[in-house]
Computed example of a mutant assay.
Amino acid sequence: MSEDPSPTVFLAIYIVTFLIRFPNSVLAFYSCIRKIHSKPIPIDIFMLNLTISDLILLIFLPIKMKEAADNMVWNMPFFMCHFDLFVYLLPIYSSSLFLTAISAERYVCIAFPVKYRSPKRIIYTIPICVAIWVLVTASAVFVYKTAYTDSGVADNTTKRQTQVIEPQRCYSDFTVKQLTELFPVLLSIAVVFFFLPFLTCCFCYINFIRILLKLPLIKRQRRLRAVGMALGTLLVFASSFAPYNISHLVGFITKENPKWRATALILSTINACYDPIIFFCISKEMRSAIKVCAKASFQIYAYLKS
């Protein structure tokens, strides 16, 4: 991946992601709210926050579409470039932590079933979600501030305009001062929001599968669905977030901004398309809602055809 794809490829990915994920995100949000209102459990609250994270990304994704349509030239007010950097990073960071929280919940559910059913557990879930949002917001702001650090050696043409990190492409050239301060920050971000969460997910889901396979009373179909969900989540986690975070590690080692970072970041955007699989496997209400929508769609199609 020595070069980024053309802006047309980025635009196509943004449009497909939006069209596929936005209706499912709204449906998942409705299903989570309905389930929490009737009988809340910790994993439903984590799923709700994951949905909110996806919706934040999708609501502001048209900004990225406009940028790609303009051949990666920023033709919008410059303050929106600042804002776009923040709202684009926020869901990426939060998604990894909420996926980790869901994996921990699945493991606790099967490893400690008695403690999992304790009504007191719901009390601790909300503070955990709040802590995650505070952490990701602070991290996104920190990266934002570092990326906008002024440099005394900057070109005269940039005195009135600051720089941002790729793939925003408002300005893609970094000063030496910016790179020096940005690389350690991005490496720390990669450790906190990918490497540690990924190891946690691996531990939780490997033990989840190991325990699940030893339980004889669970039906084979349900067991296979749970195992597939665990393996699928790990695959999605790795394929979506690994390339972008590895680019931070490469940048820290080589002291150069990887040219393929924008390509790696686009995989984190596609992650929004994978989350419906997780919702479908975990939530019975989500499966029922999808079936109702599918049935209604077929009925409408049959009516219009007749």
Rank of each mutant, 00 (worst) to 15 (best):
W133D: 11
I33A: 08
I15K: 07
Y148V: 08
I92W: 07
Y144L: 12
C281S: 15
C32M: 08
Y88C: 07
F18C: 03
F10P: 00
K177W: 08
T254S: 11
K291F: 14
F183D: 00
P167G: 03
L57A: 12
N71Q: 06
F194D: 06
Y205F: 13
V9R: 01
P258H: 03
E67H: 10
Y244W: 14
A190I: 01
I277D: 05
P243N: 00
F203N: 04
A264P: 09
I45T: 06
A12M: 12
F60T: 07
D173W: 07
M80Y: 13
H82T: 01
C81W: 15
P40Q: 01
S6C: 06
L89T: 05
F195S: 02
P197M: 07
A302D: 13
R106P: 09
K259I: 06
F280H: 11
V191E: 14
P127A: 00
D54Q: 07
L19V: 13
V236P: 00
I278Y: 14
P184I: 05
S31R: 02
A69P: 05
I59E: 03
M1E: 08
F142Y: 14
T158R: 06
L19C: 15
F142M: 10
F241D: 10
F79N: 12
A230C: 05
A294M: 10
P119V: 03
K219P: 00
T158P: 00
L182C: 02
F18H: 09
F208R: 02
K66N: 12
V153H: 04
V87I: 08
L187C: 03
F79Q: 07
I277E: 08
E67P: 00
V153Y: 13
S306A: 07
M65V: 04
P127L: 04
W74V: 04
M1F: 05
R225G: 02
F78P: 00
Y301Q: 10
K214I: 04
D44S: 06
L186P: 00
I52H: 05
I211D: 06
N271T: 02
V191D: 15
R117A: 11
V192A: 14
L186M: 15
I189E: 12
I282W: 02
F183W: 12
Q163G: 06
S2H: 09
I110C: 07
I59C: 06
E181L: 14
Q163S: 07
E3K: 05
N156F: 13
L265S: 14
L19F: 11
F203H: 06
T157K: 10
A69C: 03
I110R: 02
G232T: 02
K259T: 07
Y144G: 06
S297I: 10
I13D: 07
V191S: 01
M72T: 09
T269N: 12
T125V: 12
K291E: 13
L179R: 13
W260L: 10
